[in-house]
Design a protein around this nucleic acid. Structure first.
Length: 308
DNA sequence: TCTCCTCGAGATCT
DNA sequence: CTCGAGGAGA
């Protein structure tokens, strides 16, 4: 079910606070798994939230590290000279990781690197599910502008700065996780872990009633029935419906015999061209052939009707 | 109503 | 990558 063409067997992002897991962090030569290499892995195995084992190693980068990465992490080419190659150390890492849930900050970054490396070195995909402390904190602190690891360690009083070394960052990520878990269990974040499918209500034309006292009955819109298809570029569909009813017009959810105008949204028009006409558009043309006077108009024509 | 799809905006990782 | 808005079909 993972709709991930590039990594079809990648695990799922869990919205949960497990007790047993491996919290980890990696350092790399850059941001792109296709072009960059892992130069450090640190992982802490926890049972009942307590560390019981650890794995940490530097890894020799095939093409070395840039000055930027050395400045950013403190990892130099000299430090990597005696480090094991990825092919020598990765099987041990997979054995350490086993089938544990992975925890990390913006953990998709780490999981994607590890997935590709596992496929390349060990010829098997990394299927572990994972918990992202960034995703959790965004849900628990929706009003905060930023939820970087550096923000969270300050917010929770864990530390003043991140070192950008895997071992230290993994430990701080674990502290962040325990703070998030503790806060969640104290309550007040009831819906933070809920799957969010459709937060917005389906808009019904009948829900729109005039929001002004003086209706403009002089408009061409008065007494006419409108239906919309495609998304509008100038305003939301709700706002467009509001303009109609404020002028004494009526809005319909579907194309019916009594519909006078079908408005094709400007943003939707491109999609209509690519995927063909919408169902509403097609049913409007059928009704027109039967002799029902439905006008199919563009968003711009609709705007002209609003503001003659 | 419910489920599934597409799109754009915004944020984070080294 | 995740999320919200929006659309379509059953």
């Amino acid at each position: 079910m993972p709709r991930n063409d590039k990594r079809p067997l990648k695990g799922n992002s869990l919205l949960d606070f497990p007790n047993d897991y491996v919290v980890l962090d990696i350092e790399t030569t850059g941001l792109d798994p296709d072009y960059d290499d892992i130069i450090e892995i640190s992982a802490i195995k926890c049972v009942a939230d307590e560390p019981i084992d650890a794995f940490s190693t530097l890894i020799k980068a095939p093409s070395g590290v840039s000055d930027f990465i050395t400045d950013f992490t403190g990892i130099t080419n000299e430090m990597l000279a005696d480090a094991p190659a990825i092919s020598d150390i990765f099987p041990q890492f997979l054995e350490f990781l086993s089938d544990n849930i992975i925890i990390g900050h913006n953990v998709n970054f780490d999981v994607n690197f590890l997935y590709d490396t596992s496929l390349k070195i060990c010829e098997r995909p990394l299927k572990n599910d994972f918990v992202d402390t960034m995703r959790l904190s965004r849900r628990m602190f929706p009003d905060e502008a930023h939820n970087r690891l550096s923000d969270l360690i300050v917010r929770f009083g864990i530390g003043a700065d991140v070192s950008h070394r895997a071992d230290s960052d993994a430990r701080q990520t674990h502290e962040v996780y325990l703070h998030l878990k503790s806060l969640f269990q104290k309550g007040g974040f009831a819906d933070a872990l809920e799957l969010r499918r459709h937060s917005s209500k389906y808009l019904r034309a009948s829900d729109i009633s005039p929001d002004i006292n003086n209706l403009n009955f002089d408009s061409d819109i008065y007494g006419k029935v409108f239906c919309f298809t495609g998304s509008l570029s100038s305003f939301t569909r709700a706002a467009a419906m509001q303009e109609v009813v404020n002028r004494g017009g009526v809005c319909a959810d579907t194309v019916r015999k009594d519909v006078n105008y079908l408005v094709i949204g400007g943003n939707g028009y491109k999609m209509e061209l690519e995927n063909g006409k919408s169902k509403k558009w097609i049913s409007a043309e059928k009704l027109m052939k039967k002799g029902n006077p439905i006008s199919v108009i563009s968003e711009n024509v609709f705007l002209d009707m609003l503001n003659p």
